[in-house]
């Protein structure tokens, strides 16, 4: 009898250790992300309702003593958001950022789709090599690759020199510090993020479907539009979100290649923070940007979860 008890006891203890280990495995990254990822957003949210002060830190405290000194109250002031609404600069900056991100995403899709398709239909031995070629630039410094375009697009840069030498133009084109340069920079930096999800989708397609469509007399264009494209839609959505969301808040590319008379929202946020030292307005800009991007971010999460669930089966 005591033997059975001892065995039961040992088992219970093992189970307990397992549960404790489990909680530790879940708890450590959970707490880390809670402290360093979620709590910061709450602080930004609170500071966006604060007033700017000439102090360090340059905002009114999060909690102040009530007028009668009896308790602490949180001060909420909507002034920063009112400021964003009334100054048309912010509105046009937001619109411009969304436009730049949308156009760049579309260009990425138009260039990336045929590339991903070509890789997915390549022979298996070349496929890995091609994927490595797509990924290789990603491993080298993003900043330096954007900087490379300055040398290419400058008035006396490589592209203008080549066009002049070829006699195609008489006057150097102004390419740098334009919308065009920003599109080139974003498409160039984010292209791998478009290609990879598209590739992993296209690679899984059942090729007999295409044969069936052809046997039934569909022309290749029809087959592509009616079979391949609809099947690849999840990959298209994932690729577009991976480009669009970070591109809206892009800071480095427009700073190096973009116009100086029309800033993007990431630059405005950081100027408010560093140059104007107006932390509350910078926080309000961050919150509005986050709200604008909330729906695409949630859509991306849904896709990402579905991908990982599908891989399990």
């Amino acid at each position: 009898m005591s033997d059975a008890f001892a065995r039961l006891d040992r088992r219970a203890r093992g189970l307990l250790a397992r549960v404790r280990g489990r909680n530790l495995v879940i708890g450590i990254p959970y707490l880390w992300l809670l402290l360093f990822f979620v709590v910061p957003f709450l602080i930004v949210f609170k500071i966006s309702f604060s007033e700017v002060r000439l102090a360090m830190p340059p905002y009114a405290p999060l909690f102040e003593q009530a007028a009668d000194g009896s308790r602490m109250v949180a001060i909420f002031n909507l002034g920063n958001y009112g400021y964003l609404l009334t100054d048309s600069l912010y509105f046009s900056t937001f619109l411009y950022s969304l436009k730049v991100a949308a156009v760049s995403t579309l260009l990425c899709l138009l260039i990336g789709y045929p590339m991903a398709y070509a890789i997915a239909r390549a022979r298996e031995s070349t496929r890995n090599l091609l994927l490595m070629l797509i990924m290789l630039p990603f491993w080298t410094s993003f900043l330096l690759r954007v900087y490379a375009w300055v040398g290419l697009l400058k008035t006396d840069g490589v592209i203008n020199n080549a066009l002049l030498a070829a006699g195609l133009i008489d006057q150097p084109l102004s390419l740098l510090y334009t919308d065009f340069a920003v599109y080139v920079g974003i498409v160039y930096s984010y292209l791998p993020f478009m290609i990879l999800p598209l590739y992993s989708n296209l690679e899984k397609h059942d090729l007999t479907l295409l044969e069936a469509a052809a046997d039934l007399g569909a022309r290749p264009v029809t087959t592509f539009l009616r079979v391949t494209l609809p099947l690849s839609l999840p990959g298209v959505v994932a690729g577009c979100l991976l480009v669009f969301i970070p591109a809206v808040g892009e800071y480095v590319i427009p700073s190096l290649l973009g116009r100086s008379d029309q800033l993007m929202i990431g630059r405005v946020l950081s100027d408010e923070f560093f140059a104007n030292r107006d932390w509350p307005v910078a926080s309000a800009v961050a919150i509005v940007l986050l709200v604008v991007l909330l729906a695409p971010i949630m859509l991306f999460q849904r896709y990402q979860n579905r991908e990982l669930e599908a891989a399990r089966r």
């Binding site: 990822f37 991976l242 950081s270 991306f300």
Partner: peptide, 10 residues
Amino acid sequence: TAPLVMPEVI
């Protein structure tokens, strides 16, 4: 998954 796409300025 959110940090994968979160704009860096935020």
